[in-house]
Design a protein around this nucleic acid. Structure first.
Lengths: 221, 221
DNA sequence: CGAAGTGTTGAAGCAAATCAATTTTCGTGG
DNA sequence: CCACGAAAATTGATTTGCTTCAACACTTCG
């Protein structure tokens, strides 16, 4: 099914807001995001898509997408037409997978609401790193609790609802307190327990198998 | 299907976080909410449920709910067992309705993210009122652009990620600028266009029929 | 009538935004 | 391979939107 492969450069819009959608995308490599643009020019990134994620969980019910879809890093996508999906949901049991993706996405987005509403800048940042740590572990992109953040500090600001300046300072705080280290884009979590405490992070919301979770916590793959 | 009717008082928890879920609820009267509690005591309301809304769109895939479900006002619910839903999805075409509910919920929650991330306190409040105006219109609870807000200012604070004090002051601002009027719990939108401008509100995200939208804008039912 | 919950007000403090450079990194072409 | 320009990261100074604290008033209801 994953035949039509396409590549996009970083910050390249793949779908503008409100554009009619004839197919959905699977992220194969790189990071992408869903975002919203406000009339006053401000931007908010609604969700981050990592390799393996689907552009929209609504393959089954065609509709207008009401948010933009854009590359955060150079990204490789596979385009799947709605017909293919509908066929596949009958043939194989793809629909269960779609439901699961949807459940996962919703859980992340709700946690995002909590972060924006009730966590401080430092907590938000720490939480984002904790979440990325787990999600990237699931796709094998974490080594010794270290991973590459594909995004710029400006992007992080748009994710966390902060200014770039403040993101920069919060990152420095995390480094200074010895919770993480950073060499260029390579971030390493030095104190996982400490960072999670700082973030008020509880991985329960991701609905992962306890064994999987233990593996992530223990070794960082 | 809507046989098992239950009532709850305001602020009564219906389901605690992480509690196993054997059925889903349909709100018949009153307002309810999904919320998350942080270990530091702070609380964030993730979504508001009005009459006609479903407690969880995940009736089809049984799972842990990872957020609490609580009454905001005295509320009447109908409990539907998962078996009933599964039966009905085969018999009638309920599953389409479930998808639609899910689509709607997701759209609202994403807009919530945008509000918390990139709107000021005043804009958030205005946006909330605009959204409630539309949603309540859909269930016939708006008269001449006026409706009853069931929730306290403290609840609004937990929805918008603000302090109660600031909610109070922002409400006063909206009244002072002549955008709304308020008599007790009865809120009336005096200048719909103005309020929407203030809120950066664009109803497009709710996927409503243009005619329905016009009806709401024009008369307020 | 009193108590609890809700709404309102004022003053003070602080987290984060904004503004404005400056430095560093990085990609690209000469 | 270096030079250049642009993007990204960093820093300092200042401002502000919102929180916090603390008191007080109003409403509702047993």
């Amino acid at each position: 099914m994953l035949t039509r492969i396409q590549s996009y450069g970083a910050r390249g819009d793949i779908l503008a807001e409100g554009e009619k959608q004839k197919s959905i995308y699977v992220v194969l490599q790189g990071w992408a995001c869903r975002f919203k643009l406000l009339p006053n020019g401000k931007q908010q990134i609604v969700s981050i898509l990592l390799p393996g994620d689907l552009s929209e969980p609504f393959g089954v019910t065609p509709h207008f997408i009401e948010n933009g879809f854009s590359a955060l890093t150079p990204v490789t996508l596979a385009r799947v037409s709605l017909e293919d999906i509908r066929e596949a949901s009958v043939r194989d049991n793809i629909s269960t997978a779609l439901w699961w993706d949807l459940l996962f996405t919703t859980a992340l987005e709700r946690q995002h609401i909590v972060s924006l509403g009730r966590r401080t800048a430092l907590e938000r940042l720490a939480h984002l790193l904790c979440e990325l740590h787990v999600r990237l572990s699931l796709v094998g992109q974490v080594k010794e609790h270290g991973f590459e953040i594909g995004v710029t500090q400006t992007d992080i600001a748009d994710i966390l609802g902060l200014s770039t300046v403040h993101v920069n300072r919060s990152l420095q705080d995390l480094r200074a307190s010895g919770l993480i280290s950073q060499e260029g884009r390579w971030v390493k979590i030095l104190d996982l327990t400490g960072l999670r405490e700082e973030a008020l992070f509880d991985p329960a919301y991701m609905h992962l198998d306890p064994d999987v979770l233990d593996a992530i916590d223990g070794l960082g793959v």
